[in-house]
Design a protein around this nucleic acid. Structure first.
Lengths: 346, 346
DNA sequence: CTGAAAGCGCTTACAG
DNA sequence: CTGAAAGCGCTTACAG
């Protein structure tokens, strides 16, 4: 059902005849200038005389011309397309970062191609190839490129590659993030300082979570603590896992005094389940999350978490992109750090 | 800090000399065929003889050729780019749908340009223009295009436009969704049937929420109920708003027996706050959500919600896209419906 | 400040 | 099954 109820003022008659989409040429002809001049007007308005500019503006208006960025991309070898590769967006701690990046990039005239690499970045290599085929100006990753051949290929290309969240020893090009291992270590120190003695870890099956967990465990044991118990859960992590994780505590040989959750969602679910069982948090069992999502501060009790400034990561990424475009120098390894946010839950 | 620790086997020396990116031409020359044949091999492998195909395959391998989709797009007038326009992704009920769409589309060789239109779709018209400039093959919207000029322009273009979630009376091209008004009406009927008498609405400030709210109110009053009280909240809605919404109940002249929340997050926050105040849900106050997110089924108590099959919406969108590509016919107005999921909270 | 012309890297109708 | 050639719609170095 397609009704053309559009008033004639919008050019209904021309819609009926379906004229082809106007090109730069059409605008040029109508304005009485060459295509080159229209192109200049579009890309560097100050290069054309005011009177000429005015005629071109009118011609664009009259034709309804919309520049063809595909043709522009081919001619300039610059797509103004940025690929963002993330594991998922359904429930992801990266969403804030991605959102902030998209906001900034679109203000710069770029568009973001969002590709999903799946749990454990299964499809990462494939999506990198797609991004390369699209000749994107930059690829922004959250994850490790496992295939050495792909790493080599990326290095050989002129494309900018920014690895985010992690802080690899041997980045492909640029990396913006923090040390997950160190975050785990600091959390161990923090909890030990608060007097907890029997931590239990709930660990999502992702490289980053694993790195935090091993940092936590190493530090904990180095300080003389017993080896923490642990439960591994699938990614993406979610609220329901927290509830199940609480129930699974019953099977442990010794009850923990603090549960270190791999995400705020898990922590939230665990608290809800504990409370439903009549257990008080943190009096009877303490809980920590990770990511410092908004809900961590909103929950009852508020959740002790590790804050990662996703907006900062986005800003640094943008800064790198702009610097490279402008030919200016910039750091290729940017540590944005993290902060432990002590709240009521632990 | 940029260290080339790549083993020589990966062609380190050629990295040093930075040869230009291989083109179709290079592959053709190496394989001893014309560019046309390589192009055919890439797009319709069955069109070339097996022996030829093998030589081309080897040449692609040797050169590390990656097709330039920008050039391909210009030549075919088909970008294989789909624009997905959503208000936000930080906390969005659309994320599941978008994720499912990206999965399907990328399997078809398409990429998704994700654009954010902001609360209340402030930047929708602007992002549509960008999508048009990129010559995307389709624009998938969650929201209403307000500017009549933009609506007319979209209709005049050959681009496929799919409006999702809502089900407008006068769609631009194709729409896939359900009637929000009707969802509100059904919820009113459902709660009245369950014996509730004094509903209070927490309404996010979005067109769709408003439509559900007015459907609810109309139906409720038509059945002889008193006018429900209401509280409007900003979008995107989140957990913390639920907590605040609970506290705000104290200001009401008469206490509700059920709170109808515009999202599951709000419902969850409201339940947590009620419980923290020692109030039992649903015995002392009932609560409903919207969206049937995973957490609705996981929460304690489980949350009565309205299920919208985001995956189904994604599948229908894909079906439409494929049908149009194949030149087959399809419905231009697809109602995916909704279901009220009765659980413990109301 | 402006124009003519070559070029970006593909695809495909046409001819063989 | 394959090749030569034109064309997709821009941009920009060069010349004036």
């Amino acid at each position: 059902m397609m009704i053309f109820a559009t008033p004639a003022i919008f050019g209904l008659s021309s819609i009926m005849t379906m004229p082809r989409v106007p090109r730069l040429d059409d605008v040029a002809t109508l304005a009485g200038v060459s295509p080159a001049t229209v192109s200049r007007f579009l890309n560097n308005p100050h290069m054309v005389k005011t009177a000429t500019a005015e005629r071109i503006r009118a011609a664009i208006e009259a034709t309804g011309y919309v520049p063809n960025m595909t043709a522009g991309a081919l001619a300039t070898n610059r797509s103004r397309l940025i690929a963002a590769l993330v594991p998922d967006i359904a429930q992801s701690i990266f969403n804030d970062t991605v959102e902030a990046m998209i906001d900034e990039l679109s203000a710069d005239g770029n568009s973001v191609v969002l590709a999903l690499t799946g749990a454990d970045n299964r499809r990462l290599d494939r999506e990198i190839n797609v991004a390369l085929a699209r000749r994107v100006d930059a690829i922004i990753l959250t994850g490790i490129v496992s295939d050495p051949e792909v790493r080599a290929r990326l290095r050989a290309q002129s494309v900018t590659v920014i690895e985010t969240w992690g802080l690899p020893d041997d980045p492909i090009d640029v990396s913006v993030g923090f040390s997950h291992r160190q975050a785990g270590e600091e959390l161990a120190r923090f909890l030990r300082g608060r007097g907890y003695r029997r931590p239990h870890l709930v660990v999502p099956r992702s490289t980053r979570s694993e790195r935090r967990a091993s940092g936590f465990i190493d530090r904990w044991m180095r300080e003389g603590g017993p080896e923490p118990t642990r439960l591994d859960v699938n990614v993406p992590s979610h609220f329901g896992q927290g509830r199940l994780s609480y129930r699974a505590l019953a099977d442990l040989p010794v009850q923990p005094d603090v549960v270190v959750c791999g995400s705020d969602w898990i922590a939230q679910g665990l608290i809800v389940e504990a409370q439903a069982a009549g257990i008080r948090v943190p009096d009877q069992i303490a809980v920590t999350g990770f990511g410092n999502l908004r809900l961590a501060g909103d929950m009852r009790p508020t959740i002790t978490s590790v804050d990662v400034d996703g907006g900062r990561i986005a800003r640094e990424v943008i800064r790198v992109l702009r610097a490279r475009t402008a030919g200016e120098s910039f750091d290729t390894r940017i540590d944005v750090g993290f902060r432990i946010i002590a709240r009521e839950s632990a």
